[in-house]
Design a protein around this nucleic acid. Sequence first.
DNA 1: AGACAGTCTAA
DNA 2: TTAGAC
DNA 3: GTCT
Length: 855
Amino acid sequence: MEPALGDKVAFFQELKAFQTEDGNEDTWTTKDSHRNAAKTFMKAAAGATTNSMSSDLARPVNQVVAATKPFLVSTPKRTASDPVQTTKNSEISRIIKSTPPNSHLVPHLRETASEVIDLSTITDTPIPDSTKASSKQQPQRRVSDRLLRRRATGSPSVQETPSFKMPKRKKDVPIKMVPEADRCFAGLVFFFFPNSDANSVRKKRIDKAREYGATWTRSLKDATHIIVDKGLTYADLKPLLEGDVDPAKKIVVNADFPIDCWTHRTLVSHDQEKYQVPGKTASQQSNAHPAVASQSSDQSLVLKERRSKRSRTSSQITTRSGNLASQAAAQSTEHAVIPSTQPVAASLRSRANSSSSTTSEEGNPVDNVRKDQEGFRSRMPPPDMDSEKSSFEDELSQCIGHIMEFGNDVVIPGEEEDQSPQPEDTEESKRPEDIDDDDEPHRSEDERPAKKTRTSRTGASAAKGSEGWQSSFACMQGGLKGVESENPNAETINFLLEMADEYEKKGDERFRRDAFRKAAGALKQQSVKILTFAEAIAIDNIGKSSAEKIEEFARTGRVKKLQNLQNDPMVKLQGLFTKIYGVGPSLADRWIRQGYRTLDDIREKAHLTANQQIGLDHYDELNTRIPRKEVEALGAHVVRAARAIDRDVQLIIGGSYRRGADSSGDIDIIITRQGMSSTGQLIDFLDELVLKLTNEGFLTVALAAHRKSHVDDTDGNKWQGCCVLPKDEYPGDDGSEVDDANTSDNDGSHERPNNKSNKDGWRPIWRRIDLLLVPASQLGAALIYFTGNDIFNRSIRLLAQKKGMRLNQRGLYRDVLRGKGNVKIAEGELIEGEYERKIFRHLGVHWREPHERWC
DNA sequence: AGACAGTCTAA
DNA sequence: TTAGAC
DNA sequence: GTCT
Ligand SMILES: O=c1ccn([C@H]2C[C@H](O)[C@@H](COP(=O)(O)OP(=O)(O)OP(=O)(O)O)O2)c(=O)[nH]1
Ligand SMILES: [Mg+2]
């Protein structure tokens, strides 16, 4: 997800209030921050009515292809059956080329790909390359170099292992030193209190400390630090300190100190309360801890851990600058600077379905198909369930909903329609199957003592016309351009989302990040502008801290804390580094602590895993969003290959594409096949497909492949890697643009589609691609999972959990036993996995079309 | 003080 | 086990 | 950060 996430608003308030149906929705939507682009719905082409659209999105790939194809070729029309595309295939295949067939690619894929690439890309490429944008830019290396380098480095750590001085005694066991940059204890001499390594736990600790650069001494006087086992006190230490040593010069800490240091790969502040050894006397207190500071960093951790204290009372606001909110907005823009690449946005359209959403009913074709076969039906009985489950539904709805509403327009020609709408529903009221789940209205609660005002619903009717909805879209779309949102708290909501964005970059601050999103979501439900602490804190999911910030924002138009975060160079760096595929908050933090400040620093100094190297080599490409049409083209390519292998497989493009996004961060494809339940077959198919696509040059690298564990296992069904769209498969004939986005030059010679080589300057953009193999019986659950968005998934899974169930990518289970920490003890019994609708129904959630799942 | 989704792979 | 990703 |  990356930056885009911003939009996700909070949600998660699952249980709790339920207001009646949302029947009317409102929708207003706030716009959220920029980030997210698009989601608009189908822009032109894809269109079709909403209904159709949904079906469209859901439609099995082959259909997609058909649809897509027209683009490639010309105008659409037709519904698709499947065969069609084969023709075109040949053409492509011939283009393909000769990459030697490697046997199983999984293992070798990477190599192969590199090879290929190396040969081909020799020149620097144009492409976005925002590297520069980021920080200092240095000479940028050529792609080929990078690749080569990667290869070279390819083998995992090896090199290093400097011997380093081993402490006085102790020699035998060769200690494997960590990379030099991580040697947080370099230069320090540790004396462990029970002065012996007899105890295995302690010995481990000692060895580990040495691996991180410490020298172990058994003679107190050489020590810079005295590491005391937990449970011991100064009194125990006393005898030792008596001699000639000057206790005042030694740093005395408990065993947690070294552990935290190596965990963070940095020397943390030893004077924190948690490292103190009990029994310290006044005289001992005043140590000036000398030695310490050795390396560059130090700071951070301490601060981080101690942070909490919320002192700020509303009083401190003062500053008033006059311009309010706009400022915040400006800043955000600013931070967007880094790699940029935000794609296009577009307009969208949507449809209202809202409460009546039950309508469409058929969301996924497959389901429909099966229904027919089996005679199932899934619709939601409008009335019956509603009443009860509504509370939950509402919640989900709140999260998501509101987004789309208006529908309108555009219908697209051709295709699509066909399959979906089936008038069938009608009956079915019978619960298909037993199910039952109970559902009781949990209603409840709500209460929240004193506070709670809950005004909910926006009154905004906002929408109505396009603009309203536009704004609503903003929420998902990103851009902050419009502003208009009718929501009186729009700016405040944006502010909270910006806070979340900042925390997203910071080292493990995900819960704080989510808390801000939830707060934003809560504010979104308010119909009146919230201006004071009192008003704010009365709202669920907005506590003291957020309430203070809200008031500060209302009064001054800005919030110090946010500005501090936005201006914090370290936070900016975190954003820069974590955008490298494979790099998260932990590593970004460590790098920053080690003094790295630019991507070039990372290229030169950091030691990277294979995936991180790829992420860095293709930093800009992988951070460039994919226009919807290209997603379709990529999908079409995969479909062609898949069907060449097995004509009966079905592919469905999921992820943000299925939700109607007009640009996606990557392409997510679900691959299934009617009678397939055994993973074995699927896996063989997958390997074959991957091999084929790799040989064609479409797939460029494997980032993570299923672990073909024991036969039969249920997992091992996901393949992640990178791909490239052959030049001649770029959409655009029908008017829509074309490649130039990446081509930059393309001097007339277009041709060889292929990715790699080409000396004509054409260079394909690497894209992330995820393939998910799904047995037919798990398709519904897999669709929910792969369609997302992530927030929607977490929300609905949390809801399931609260109802004693468990929802994962394979199905919905009941009677799940959980132990401490909600850790699953028993898997529970499978309730449903095949149909999305049934799963929703069991959870008491109204059906939501994919495009309604943006939260 | 614990939860905040649930699962999988790489290292 | 931890980090990162979906 | 917020709720339980
Ligand atoms: O933490 C996560 C991330 C993703 N997903 C699911 C939902 C998501 O829709 C799908 C695909 O993930 P991806 O990262 O591709 O997100 P997306 O929704 O497709 O957005 P993008 O446009 O960034 O690809 O996997 C989760 O369940 N949890
Ligand atoms: Mg995606």
